[in-house]
Amino acid sequence: MTVIFIVAHAPLASALKACVWHVLGCDPHIQAFDVEPDECASDSAPRLAASIFESAQGQGALILTDLPGATPSNIAVAASKLLHSQGVSSHVLGGVNASMLLKAINYRNAALDVVIEKALIGATQAVLRVD
């Protein structure tokens, strides 16, 4: 099963986890990593990588982040590189939204590439005008 981590500007990661819990009505078994304003990638990435490594237990990890190129994204990318050096397959997707997260959760038992594909579809199909 793919391990799912949300890495985002505080308090967005925790808020997305709470939102998914609300929608599903149960613990979604994902991890939230809120990045505080004074955090930097070089300090936080090893801590994030260690947490993912412990959770993944040899399985793949999907790291969802809010803004590509921003500090949470940089932390996620640096952590992913550390995980790869430890033999853990991980990938980072930017632009996380609730639909992306729900799709990833619903397909987390599939191969990591399938989880990534479904998450991207969920994210893009949810962006539309509704009025």
Rank of each mutant, 00 (worst) to 15 (best):
H91D: 13
A49M: 12
V92N: 10
I63D: 12
A79P: 11
V35I: 13
L120S: 03
A79K: 05
L12S: 10
S44L: 13
L16W: 12
R47V: 15
L102K: 00
M100A: 02
I30A: 04
L102Q: 03
A10E: 13
P28L: 04
F33I: 05
V35G: 00
S14R: 02
S89Q: 14
A76V: 05
L120F: 00
L16V: 04
A110S: 15
P28V: 04
Q31C: 07
V23K: 00
A111T: 01
L12F: 10
C19I: 05
I52W: 12
P28T: 02
A123N: 12
D131H: 11
C19Q: 07
V23S: 02
V115E: 04
A104E: 12
A104C: 12
A13P: 11
I30W: 02
A41G: 12
E54R: 10
Q125H: 06
L93R: 01
L48S: 05
Q59N: 14
V96K: 02
G60M: 01
R108S: 10
N109R: 04
N74A: 09
L24T: 08
H84L: 07
A49D: 13
G94C: 09
L12Y: 05
D38P: 00
Y107N: 15
S85I: 00
A15L: 08
A78I: 08
A98K: 00
A49H: 07
A45H: 02
L64W: 03
F53I: 07
L67D: 00
I75Y: 01
L83Q: 08
K81M: 15
A61R: 02
I30F: 06
L64P: 09
D66L: 07
H91W: 14
Q125T: 14
P68W: 01
Q57C: 10
C19G: 13
S85T: 08
M100R: 00
A110N: 15
L24G: 06
P37F: 02
V114K: 04
V127K: 13
V92L: 10
P37C: 03
L62H: 04
D27C: 05
H91A: 14
M100V: 01
N106S: 15
I4C: 01
S85Y: 03
N109K: 09
A18N: 14
F5T: 06
Y107W: 15
D131L: 12
H29K: 10
E36D: 13
V3Q: 11
M1T: 10
W21L: 10
A49I: 11
A111W: 00
A78M: 15
A41E: 14
Q86W: 09
T71N: 09
T71Q: 08
G94N: 12
L64R: 03
